[in-house]
Design a protein around this nucleic acid. Structure first.
Length: 632
RNA sequence: GCCCACGUAGCUCAGGGGUAGAGCACCUCCUUGGUAAGGAGGAGGUCAUGAGUUCAAAUCUCAUCGUGGGCUCCA
């Protein structure tokens, strides 16, 4: 049965489209006033109804939600007594949460469920939408002992119609929209099972969630599954182990990173680049301790607002000291150490400051979520009238620094004053928000507004980057702070010889070095560009008699500060090439009889391919050119 | 923290109530080679930790620790 043969009741979106001859065999839903509805939903006369075809992006959501229903049907067929809860479509897929006495689903069960779903789909059942009264719905679900549905039913607002969706005999309380027929479910895959609290609240019962994904056709599904595979291959935890960059040792503790020589090399390169860049961009570098007395954290407000994320204090001669979760109070202490004039401002103080925060054990994740990490932190103290200019500088700097690592696809958001609670004068807020926006505009940067998304102490700019396989990560953050200058009673002497309150911004560009390293490692899939590679070039000897020449060349290169190894393994050249490639070393130089005789190497690089013979002088020149860090 | 799964050699993993396996890596020897794995041999494990069941536990049970997937997407 083709979709154009289905008869939709008069007044429904389907009938509407049919009339205008816009109903195609692959039309799966409609859009009215920007809202996606299914074809069975009634529309008002004169409404603008646009068809949504299976291949449209907006169709994915509908297809996924319908697939979730079919999955729930299959689960209840296979595991009677399992109660359904909610099953929305989400980014890249869908899930459905079940209350099952015997707990979570195993992988074999997921395979069984998939099979059962295929069996259900064989019959090409229509999805039927029914508007019912609350009482009818209540009777239906209490008869089925679907108590979660009853709970959801009670939560539906009075002005919202209660709708049921059937495919075959299976029914769900659901707002829709759904595809017209199960035949539109052509490509799906169940991915994983996990626990999830009822309504996301840890106080509630733990349910069993099944994640899956669905697409309009098999090719799109395949592409998505391939992308998941690719992401798995790039997993920084896997690469970190393979390339011997870092480890996390449970004898030391979760979320505490051990940097191996190669990882530490890369990190040092990042940090050196960072320091040089900051000096060039008008920052001064400072250094502060890792712990501080409780008084400091009382003044800063951390003990009041942030204590849950801090570690318990340690006792030093009867005084409680806390390990720092943030650097700001220390930077402020430096500011307060002497009287400041308006002529001193702005002060831009940067530190690679290592902080420790209590993350719950289940939240830890490789380098991306750790307990000890180094923020690329800076605080800028200034007059309010300098804010716009400073924002501009920070934004420009942020784009530059992220761009140095190949992150040029950015998503920037300005978060404004939260309605609920915020401190400070709303007029000052407004001025600050305007400064953020015009700072961005002056740099020609597009941004979106996150209305009310700012912190209670000030508005902020968040910069998200998109990596090589399209994933988005939050890195830079620029936050205006009206709170801490107040709390610490910061001041400067103005032109009028009076005391004035400076404005302060916190900013991190990379975020945390650990996290950025993880993101970057996945972005490059372990293949660092020459300027960041822990080993830049490997000299491959063909036979033992070439080792002497290779060693001499190694010293010469090391003298020039290149990161070089000599592969003298008792292996054939092919094996050495393979080793070099697996280690993601960007350049390899083969040394055999011919090279020794003519005083050079045969060079091959990841970026430029086979370059043939090069004499030593030219080789060094080549490396100097290719290994240069980005201009700061 | 909570739910589920997992924890066996440096790594990737197989096995599974009767005392430990493979491949890679490592070491030794042979081979001295020309663009993605040359050959042979060897060494390496309290099977995460602790307790219990059993004649016998790496295997079954419980606890602990750790790792992974999730726990903000609201019918």
């Amino acid at each position: 049965m083709s979709n154009t043969e289905i008869r939709y009741e008069k007044g429904t979106a389907g009938a509407f489209l049919a009339e205008k001859e816009q109903l195609r065999h692959d039309t799966i839903a409609a859009k009215v006033d920007g809202k996606v509805i299914d074809l069975q939903t009634s529309v008002q006369d004169g409404a603008t109804v646009a068809p949504i075809q299976a291949s449209d992006d907006e169709a994915q959501e509908v297809i996924r939600h319908s697939t979730a229903h079919v999955m729930a049907d299959a689960v209840q067929r296979l595991f009677p007594g399992t109660k359904v809860t909610i099953g929305p479509s989400i980014e890249n897929g869908f899930y459905y949460d079940f209350d099952r006495d015997s707990g979570g689903f195993t992988e074999e069960e997921l395979a069984d469920i998939e099979k059962e779903m295929q069996a259900i789909l064989k019959d090409n059942k229509p999805f039927v939408r029914k508007v019912v009264s609350r009482d009818d719905a209540r009777r239906l679900f209490s008869g089925m002992q679907e108590n979660y549905k009853l709970e959801l039913l009670d939560a539906i607002g009075d002005d919202v119609p209660v709708t049921l969706y059937y495919h075959g005999d299976w029914v769900d309380l659901c707002a829709g929209p759904h595809v017209p027929n199960t035949k539109f479910i052509k490509a799906f895959k169940l991915l994983s099972s996990a626990g999830a609290y009822w309504r996301g609240d840890a106080k509630n019962k733990m349910l069993s969630r099944i994640y899956g994904t669905a697409f309009s056709d098999k090719k799109a599904l395949r592409a998505h599954l391939d992308a998941l595979e690719e992401a798995k291959k790039r997993d920084h935890r896997k690469l970190g182990k393979e390339l011997d960059l870092f480890s996390i040792d449970d004898q030391i503790g979760g979320g505490l990173v051990l940097w191996h020589p190669k990882g530490a090399m890369v990190r040092t390169l990042i940090e050196n680049h960072w320091r040089s860049a900051h000096m060039k961009h008008g920052y001064e570098l400072i250094m502060t301790p890792h712990v501080g007395r409780s008084k400091l954290w009382e003044t800063s407000g951390h003990l009041e607002n942030y204590a849950d994320d801090m570690y318990a204090p340690m006792d030093i001669e009867g005084n409680p000291y806390y390990i720092k979760p943030m650097n700001c109070p220390f930077h402020i202490a430096i500011y307060r150490n002497s009287l400041k004039s308006y002529r001193d401002l702005p002060l831009r103080w940067a530190e690679l400051g290592t902080v420790y925060r209590f993350e719950r054990s289940g939240q830890l994740h490789g380098l991306l979520r750790v307990r000890g990490f180094t923020q690329d932190d800076a605080h800028i103290f200034m007059r309010l009238d300098q804010l716009e200019d400073e924002i501009r500088r920070v934004v420009r700097f942020s784009l530059k620094l992220l761009g140095d690592y190949g992150f040029t696809d950015l998503d920037i958001m300005v978060a404004t004053r939260p309605e609920e609670k915020s401190i400070g004068d709303p007029a000052v807020w407004e001025q600050a928000e305007a400064a953020l926006k015009s700072g961005l505009e002056a740099e020609g940067v597009a941004y979106t507004i996150d209305e009310g998304g700012g912190a209670f102490y000030g508005p902020k700019i968040d910069v998200k980057i998109k990596d090589a396989i399209g994933r988005v990560w939050q890195c830079s953050t620029v936050q205006v702070d009206f709170n801490l200058p107040e709390r610490f009673d910061l001041s400067y002497i103005g032109e009028d010889s009076g005391k004035h309150r400076p404005v302060m911004i916190h900013r991190a560009l990379l975020g945390s070095i650990e996290r950025f390293f993880g993101i970057m490692l996945e972005h490059y899939a372990g293949a660092f560009p020459m300027w960041l590679a822990p080993v830049q070039v490997s000299l491959l000897t063909v036979a033992d008699r070439h080792v002497e020449f290779a060693r001499k060349l190694e010293s010469a290169l090391r003298e020039k500060q290149f990161r070089v190894t000599v592969n003298t393994d008792n292996e054939k050249l092919g094996a050495k090439i393979r080793q070099t490639r697996l280690a993601r070393i960007p350049a390899m130089a083969v040394i055999g009889d011919r090279e020794v005789e003519e005083g050079g190497v045969s060079l091959k690089t990841r970026a430029d391919g086979d370059l043939g013979f090069m004499d030593v002088e030219k080789f060094i020149q080549f490396l100097e050119e290719k290994a240069a860090a980005p201009e700061i």
